[in-house]
Amino acid sequence: MYDAGVASDSGLKTIAMQRVNGSARVAFAVSGGTTRLTDLYQSGAAKIRLPKVYDLPRTAVLINTAGGLTGGDRLSYEVDLAEGAHAIVTSQTAERAYQSVSGSAKVTSLLTAGKDAVLEWLPQETILFNRSGLSRSLRAELESNARFLMLETVVLGRKAMGERVNSVFFRDSWRIRRNGKLVFADDFRLEGNAEQILAGPATAREGQAVATLVDCTPDALDRLALARSCLDNLAAGTVRAAASAWNGLLTVRFVSDDSRDLRNALITFLTGYRSADLPRVWHC
């Protein structure tokens, strides 16, 4: 896609590429004992779909109709759960960051959960292609004893296609606050030759797919045994994982050199840990 040409320093006319600029928000509240939609807004390439579900909490599916991200693209999402509401936010498919001519794509997410609310942020994986640039930030604001369960997965290229990622820029920044107090901060930065950076034993030991789960809940310590039990139940394969809990937070880190193995492990873990099936888009 492109718009009108612009003059370069050399006097030659070049093509100014069209960029994605989208935003979407969704809100839920309890009415009549049921979580119901109270607000929905979408513009540009950022869309939200609300499938009918009968055996799961209310589910919002994020869609980037541009089909991927590249340098200069902008997407923003907002999710708000009022007191006592329970909802799952996921994505239609894997997000893809493609080769960038210049700059990075930027994606921001603002999530809020009121007292006794349960917000599950469970998007499918993000695939970083060679020479891609992506900067993401996620901010969650929790009230009182709200629970926030989030997962993010990053895959470097498609192994089955023989793709290699030897030049990339990726920045992921998370901030979670409860009653205005910062309780969790995590920053991930990958710049340069990803294969070399992730080859060391202190990084990913040549793993090309990584995932982090955070369960921000007052009873996190009580959930640690369950999390480790679910990890023990994972099928033997290339996935390595470990769980820890402290001060109302439980985290699990996963790494694998095969994205399919990691995806299968995440489905098994999340189903067992949550005692519930994942949204159907995870199985399409």
Rank of each mutant, 00 (worst) to 15 (best):
M1H: 08
A4K: 14
G5E: 07
V6N: 05
A7R: 14
A7H: 10
D9A: 12
K13H: 13
T14N: 05
N21E: 04
S23D: 08
V26T: 06
A29E: 02
G33L: 09
T34D: 13
T35Y: 07
R36F: 13
R36H: 00
R36D: 00
D39V: 11
R49T: 15
L50Q: 11
P51W: 10
P51V: 06
K52H: 15
V53Q: 15
L56W: 06
L56I: 03
T59Y: 08
A60D: 05
L62K: 00
A66V: 05
A66Y: 02
A66S: 09
G68P: 14
T70W: 02
L75H: 01
S76F: 04
E78Q: 13
D80Q: 12
D80K: 11
L81V: 10
G84W: 00
G84D: 07
H86T: 15
A87F: 00
A87Y: 11
V89K: 07
Q92G: 04
A94G: 12
A94K: 06
A94T: 10
S100H: 08
S100M: 03
S102Q: 12
G103I: 00
K106F: 15
K106W: 09
T108R: 00
A113W: 07
K115R: 12
K115N: 12
D116H: 05
V118M: 06
E120S: 14
P123N: 12
T126Q: 00
I127A: 02
L134H: 09
R136S: 10
R136K: 01
S137F: 08
L138R: 11
A140E: 05
L142F: 06
N145C: 13
N145V: 04
A146P: 00
R147H: 14
F148H: 01
F148M: 03
M150A: 03
T153C: 13
T153P: 06
G157P: 04
G157W: 04
K159E: 14
A160F: 02
R164M: 03
N166M: 00
V168T: 05
D172G: 00
R177V: 06
N179S: 05
G180S: 11
F184W: 07
F184P: 06
R189V: 15
L190V: 13
E195A: 12
A199C: 06
G200N: 12
P201R: 10
T203P: 08
A204L: 09
G207L: 02
A209H: 02
T212H: 11
V214M: 09
C216T: 07
P218K: 14
R223Y: 05
L224E: 09
A225G: 09
A225L: 10
L231G: 01
D232K: 14
A235D: 13
A236C: 11
A236Y: 12
A236P: 14
T238E: 15
R240M: 07
R240N: 04
A241E: 07
A241R: 01
A242Q: 01
S244T: 11
S244I: 01
A245G: 05
A245R: 03
W246H: 01
N247D: 14
G248Y: 10
L250V: 12
T251W: 09
R253Q: 15
V255I: 15
S256G: 00
D258G: 04
S259N: 10
R260I: 13
L262V: 02
R263N: 04
A265Q: 01
I267Q: 14
I267K: 06
Y273H: 08
Y273K: 02
R274L: 12
D277E: 03
L278T: 03
V281W: 04
V281F: 13
H283F: 14
H283C: 03
C284D: 14
